[in-house]
Write a protein that binds this DNA or RNA. Structure first.
Length: 486
RNA sequence: AGCGGGGUGGAGCAGUGGUAGCUCGCAAGGCUCAUAACCUUGAGGUCCUUGGUUCGAAUCCAAGCCCCGCUACCA
């Protein structure tokens, strides 16, 4: 097993508030990072914000701010999401406006250009006069802007730089065939294979600086600004020192990426082609998650069904949000989330399940077992001393290596149920009056069970895991319930 | 239209040839250590439809119906 593991999320575009879908991506990446760390790997966890482009400029203007002031404020919100979700504390937070990133993006451009992969060509923009916005083919309905169907779309010819994507058609297909686990799940790999197999067209990677000044200047051509795609993707290498600290870069590359299904093509085709262009090895793995829908529909402000991760964390705590996202959201498919479902899962499994079990076991233990130091000497129950690691729980590990978070947690909750049933069957609370020794052994066994659960929970609910370990160590009942019923 | 995924008790899902299972919800009983928590049992299913293969199909094959994703500049 390699010693170093580099993981990254995508960088969310900051033209909207952080939303629960991105929280899912962060939490998935975090669980993988923590599990790997427990296996002894060193972790570089990357996330951050994507801050350039025309949309940002427009959103900033609408808010009466300069682009820089606007992105500063938004980046702060995204940064605050990390502690709110209990994400890896040493996570690197990169902003595409960071000077180091700007330099790296320009260097990346130069190398791609040196490889002969960048050239100038006329690009015809589709422009809706009604919106005063550039439109893409997929935004149009019957060749018209859906908001202004009576107005003709204007074609504006502009000279842009293009990236020779077409050159990488066969290399990409070879990559997919030689590395069938590059993209997970398999259905997404097939999708991107089909996309590349249909034939690739070069894509534009710059815009006129006069119209779109908010971005990274193209090296040696001040009349052009890099298109955000090109700029933002480079963050995955700039974050670990590419172009400035080769030693560091070599230590961490290649990357394990987490991304949403809307990012499949950019991450697994375009970005991989860009890497080939500058002669870097491809990503190690790209894990594609589904979308979180709300009430059966895509979340939108106008529908009023947006689920705010901050509000959830505020009401239920970061551990509860992590729990829900990892266990009750399908890792690879779209999942519908509502406040009711969240509450139901919280009460059933955290309050009644895990939290209640900790309370009842630790009450028995603190009342009837000698204090922990004696326990650790093994006088009463040698089992309690046993220190286990995540690797002792094989099924759980198997699920985790396949990124099947909910199955891994199902396994944990199955054990919680077994503990509850065991208490019911053996009745240590009555037995203590008639056969105290036997009762104490049962209780000690339960305490060991809690300790084991804490080990299993560590990648998913790190704080809860630490709390349980501490209670076991101190032989104390929790002063407040771990998860109060809501 | 093409390619891909899917249709399983009220809800969400698992199950890929051999008596239909899990979680939540619902009902009854039990327990009292615990956060009115916990345990046991029960009710509830034409496993989309039709035809086929087979001793036997939710599971394989064929046709059909329905839902979803992808078919490039959506950060």
């Amino acid at each position: 097993m390699p010693k170093a593991l580099y993981l990254t999320t995508t960088l969310p575009y900051v033209n909207a508030e952080p939303h629960i879908g991105f929280a899912l991506e962060l939490v998935q990446a975090d669980a993988v990072a923590r599990a790997a760390h427990l296996r002894g790997q060193e972790i570089f966890f990357n996330t951050g914000t994507d801050e350039h482009g025309l949309k940002i400029k427009r959103t900033a203007e609408a808010a009466g701010l300069t682009p820089q002031a606007y992105v500063d404020q938004m980046a702060e919100k995204f940064r605050r999401l990390l502690p709110a979700l209990g994400i890896w504390p040493e996570a690197n937070f990169i902003r595409t406006t960071n000077p180091a990133h700007v330099t790296a993006a320009q260097e990346f451009w130069r190398r791609a250009a040196a490889a002969g992969d960048i050239y100038k060509k006329d690009y015809s923009l589709k422009y809706c006069v009604g919106c005063e916005l550039e439109k893409t083919e997929s935004e149009l309905v019957d060749g018209h802007c859906p908001l202004h169907p009576k107005q003709e779309i204007e074609l504006i010819a502009e000279e842009n730089y293009f990236f020779r994507f077409s050159k990488y058609e066969s290399p990409l297909l070879e990559l997919y065939n030689s590395r069938p686990d590059l993209v997970l799940p398999e259905s997404r790999l097939n999708e991107v294979k089909a996309f590349v197999g249909r034939g690739l067209q070069d894509f534009s990677i710059s815009r006129s600086a006069a119209k779109q000044p908010w971005g990274i200047p193209v090296p040696d051509d001040p009349t052009q600004t890099m298109y955000v795609w090109f700029d933002a993707l480079v963050n995955y290498v700039s974050a670990i020192g590419w172009g400035s600290d080769e030693e560091k870069f070599k230590n961490w590359w290649p990357v394990v990426q987490f991304a949403g299904k809307d990012n499949l093509r950019q991450q697994s085709a375009m970005w991989q082609a860009m890497l080939m262009s500058v002669c870097l090895p491809p990503s190690k793995q790209i894990i594609i998650h589904g979308f979180v829908t709300s009430g059966g529909q895509k979340m939108s402000k106008s529908l009023g069904n947006v689920i705010d991760p901050f509000a959830l964390a505020n009401d239920y705590g970061s551990e509860a949000v992590r729990y829900f996202l990892l266990r009750h959201v399908q890792p690879f498919e779209d999942t519908d989330v509502t406040p009711e479902k969240f509450k139901e899962a919280y009460n059933a499994n955290l309050a009644n399940g895990l939290g209640n079990l900790v309370s009842r076991v630790m009450k028995l233990a603190s009342d009837h077992l000698p204090a922990s130091p004696e326990l650790q000497r093994g006088e009463l129950a040698p089992a309690v001393v046993e220190e286990r690691t995540l690797e002792d729980f094989k099924e759980l590990n198997d699920h985790l290596t396949k990124f099947e978070f909910s199955r891994a947690m199902d396994e944990i909750w199955r054990h919680i149920g077994l503990h509850d049933a065991y208490i019911q069957e053996t009745k240590p609370f009555s037995l203590i009056k008639t056969e105290p020794d036997k009762a104490r052994q049962i209780i000690a066994k339960l305490v060991q069970g809690l300790a084991d659960l804490a080990v299993c929970l560590e990648p998913f609910l790190p704080q809860t895991s630490a709390t349980i370990k501490n209670l076991v160590k101190e032989n104390k009942t929790p002063p407040q319930p771990l998860f109060p019923r809501k």
